[in-house]
Simulated scan of single mutants.
Amino acid sequence: MHSVYFDSATSSIHVTDEKAIRALWEMGFFGKGSLSRSEPSWLEREKKKRGLAGQKTSEEITRKRREERREMKLERARKEQEAIMQQLKVEAANGNPVAQQQLANGTPVTVNGPADTSTTPQTNGPAHKEAASQPDMGLTTEEDVSDPKQPTPNGTKTVRFSPVVEKKEIPKAEYASTNHQLMNEVDSFEETLTNEEHLQLSNEETFFLAYGLGAVQVFDDASGSVIPTRSLLNLFAQHSTFPSSADSAILEPDNQFLVSYVAYHHFRSLGWIVRSGVKFGVDYLLYNRGPVFAHAEFALLVLPSYEHLFWSATAERRERIAKKQDRSWWWLHGVNRVQAHVMKTLVLCFVDIPPPSESFSTNNIGEILRQYKVREMIIKRWTPNRARD
């Protein structure tokens, strides 16, 4: 069982032990590094930066994959342009006047990048026109000006570049001492380099690890005592809003933490890797295997649903529920548009809120969670030009 610490000032959970950090990440991709985008890899990145031995980090692997995808796209575009030029030549040979005109004008291949080595430069694009419109800077070579002291006809200065580059030689003794000093600095860096990164857990992740798996015990950062699992439910419910609410013996059925945790527990129990979706404007992201293997397939919005007759029994309750569910179609359209742009499927997760009962005052966690029901609905963006037969 791993030890984690709750900080009431920031309403956050921290893991400082390196073995616990690695175990929690590898056992289900829980939490994120405080100095990293996702996987805690600050130490390896720092070693790379200082020239020390280090493993490949997830950021470096992602960067390499992006470069490979970029090269693949450039190569594909180059082949497409070559096919177009070949087709133009065939059509020009068959007497097509449009193709002959394009070949006569020297239609260039417009693929740019390192993979584009066989194409001719574009001389009629916006970059060329902008460069041509710039005034002459008067930089000439030795062949253009016979005497650099003589002014040019248009009054601009001239610069003569020397073809000879002087080479500075470093004595072997000085080089050896410098190399020895650098090696000593590397050794001192390696000795003093400590891992300054810790793992941050969300309240839902912490409660799932403590209650659902029994893998962690939560310590109060102020008193240093262990917080019981039953007390964690009330504690996280209080800190689900900012500022935190007052301590109450009775939980509200539609408490923000309860509704969010029900959805988190539901999908974790089904085998999904559930991560925060704040980057894409949703509550959660659902991964099939994990963030290190592939991108998330689904983006999850958690919405409380007040279908029970208790919530519509009085006008006061109906008014309160209407304020909580006040969302426009434009909001939903905006969220769905973002998910379509990042190639994710939007899932609306409706959590049916039960009426208040005695179980919410007894802190019987199993009995409380048993009263909730979860329904999912997938929404896809319809584009007319792609949906035509």
Rank of each mutant, 00 (worst) to 15 (best):
T123N: 14
P114L: 15
V98C: 02
E358H: 10
R388Y: 10
M343S: 14
K32P: 00
S245T: 12
H14I: 02
I84F: 15
E82M: 13
R45L: 02
E67R: 06
P291E: 04
E46F: 01
M377W: 06
T140M: 05
G155V: 01
A131Q: 11
V262G: 01
G277V: 00
L251F: 03
M85N: 11
A296C: 05
C349N: 09
K64P: 00
H128N: 10
L43C: 00
Y175W: 10
A296Y: 02
E18N: 12
R381F: 02
F208A: 03
L270T: 07
E316G: 11
E75M: 14
K323S: 14
T241G: 03
F310C: 06
P148N: 08
A387I: 02
L369Y: 01
T229E: 13
R22W: 00
W42R: 04
T314S: 15
V218E: 03
L103E: 06
L193T: 12
M1L: 15
K149E: 12
A210N: 09
F293A: 07
F298W: 08
R337L: 14
V218C: 11
N112Y: 14
K167A: 12
G155L: 02
N94A: 14
I365S: 05
Y175N: 08
Q181G: 09
G271T: 09
K19F: 08
G334E: 09
M72N: 14
L199S: 04
H198C: 08
N124Q: 14
V302Y: 02
G28N: 07
R45D: 07
S188N: 13
H265E: 15
A173V: 13
L193Y: 12
E80R: 12
R268T: 10
L258W: 02
V259R: 00
D187Q: 15
L286R: 09
S177F: 08
S248C: 05
V90T: 11
E205V: 01
I227R: 10
N179Y: 11
T314N: 10
V216C: 10
V262A: 05
V159M: 12
T10G: 02
E196Q: 15
Y287I: 05
H239A: 07
A9T: 10
D144P: 02
K89S: 10
K73S: 13
W272P: 05
G366V: 01
Y284T: 00
L35K: 11
R381W: 03
L303S: 09
P291L: 04
F207K: 02
K48P: 00
E142N: 09
K48L: 13
L300P: 00
A222Q: 11
V164E: 11
S245N: 05
R337Y: 13
A83D: 14
F298D: 03
Q339V: 08
F350Y: 12
A210F: 05
R320Q: 15
I321S: 10
S11G: 07
R76A: 15
I170P: 02
N336C: 08
G290A: 06
F207M: 07
E44S: 09
K373P: 01
M137N: 06
T57K: 01
K149G: 06
F236Y: 07
G113K: 12
P291I: 04
A249V: 05
R66S: 07
G125W: 07
A313E: 15
G290E: 03
T141L: 04
L303Y: 09
R45F: 01
T123C: 13
V282Q: 04
P153N: 03
K64H: 12
L285M: 10
L43S: 00
E71N: 13
S357I: 06
D136W: 07
F208S: 07
